[in-house]
């Protein structure tokens, strides 16, 4: 066999080249992200003002602000979370703490994964037929929130499950050995330990819900509605749909452009805040647990 030096050098050269390629492609991904963010920030920042955030759209949505859309999105986020968070957490508790490795558990997991994979536009159709028509909620915050809630349910379930799984069994056994019931163990030991990860998951799903458009198209979103909702059966404007409308089908697309940049920046701002909050929380809690 030949272990010549040139062979070794060739090997190292190949490695060097491969690593450079991977590094370059990774940098490209980051550049793409930065490009998108900076492009929208650059064009949007001059539009954003207190007035933009707090006034009604005017002049065929080419002037004024996005206040009703912000409020609408907030309503939808709140509504969907009220629905998805408790059910998602309860569901994950049942899957992770009560069912054993059985057919039933696998079935439920499969269904949850399937639900997660269903395109958001299909959720929109489903929400329209079930909530808007069959149950007679009409185009309303209620119908939109429930649709969005179902959409995020698998995300909440999955993150909660991961969080519960990361709690070591020795803590559960320790609690049982002291005569705690299953429920007491879950409530006093498992949930408090899993809480940070659960809350991080919930925050991230808030980011997702606030940006979804397809599910609200036919369940709640109003094209133009310069007033605030008064109840859960009202229609609302929403930021993502508003951006879609003014950038593709507004009465005057060119003149609405600045409004579109501003709206896009508000949406990105929400996502940024949500991500930073989730990461900060994760860091904060992981420091706390590091005392271990």
């Amino acid at each position: 066999m030949n272990f010549s030096k040139s062979n070794v050098r060739k090997k190292e050269l190949k490695q060097w080249m491969a690593f450079q390629v991977f590094r370059a492609l990774s940098i490209l991904v980051v550049v793409i992200l930065i490009l998108i963010l900076s492009f929208i920030t650059y064009h949007g920042i001059s539009v954003i003002s207190w007035e933009f955030l707090t006034s009604m759209p005017e002049d065929g949505m080419s002037k004024g602000g996005v206040f009703p859309a912000i409020i609408g999105t907030l309503c939808l986020v709140a509504g969907s979370m009220i629905f998805a968070v408790p059910i998602g957490i309860l569901s994950a508790i049942y899957i992770n703490e009560y069912t054993k490795a059985s057919f039933f558990k696998r079935f439920i997991k499969l269904m949850t994964n399937n639900l997660a994979g269903i395109p958001s536009i299909v959720f929109g159709l489903f929400g329209m037929t079930l909530f808007v028509k069959t149950l007679g909620f009409g185009d309303s915050i209620l119908a939109g929130s429930l649709t969005l809630g179902l959409l995020t349910l698998p995300v909440v379930i999955r993150t909660t499950e991961e969080a519960l799984k990361s709690v070591e069994n020795s803590f559960r056994h320790g609690s049982y050995a002291l005569g705690a019931t299953k429920l007491q163990t879950i409530r006093r030991v498992v949930l408090p330990m899993a809480f940070p990860n659960i809350i991080t998951g919930v925050i991230l799903s808030i980011g997702r819900v606030s940006g979804e458009t397809a599910p609200i198209l036919f369940t709640v979103a109003a094209y133009f509605l310069p007033k605030l909702p008064t109840g859960i059966s009202d229609q609302v404007m929403a930021l993502p749909y508003h951006l879609y409308v003014i950038s593709t089908s507004g009465t005057n697309i060119e003149e609405s452009r600045p409004m579109a940049y501003g709206t896009a920046l508000v949406l990105i701002g929400i996502v940024l805040i949500v991500n930073i909050a989730a990461n900060a929380l994760r860091k904060y809690f992981s420091k706390k647990v590091k005392m271990n």
């Binding site: 070591e168 020795s170 803590f171 056994h173 320790g174 609690s175 002291l178 005569g179 705690a180 019931t181 007491q184 163990t185 006093r188 030991v189 408090p192 330990m193 647990v289 271990n292």
Partner: peptide
């Protein structure tokens, strides 16, 4: 395998759950 609680709460735990 102490719980991630205070020293006091670790011992009180068994009492509280009972």
């Amino acid at each position: 395998n102490p719980f991630p609680k205070t020293i006091f709460e670790n011992i009180a735990y068994g009492l509280r759950v009972n």
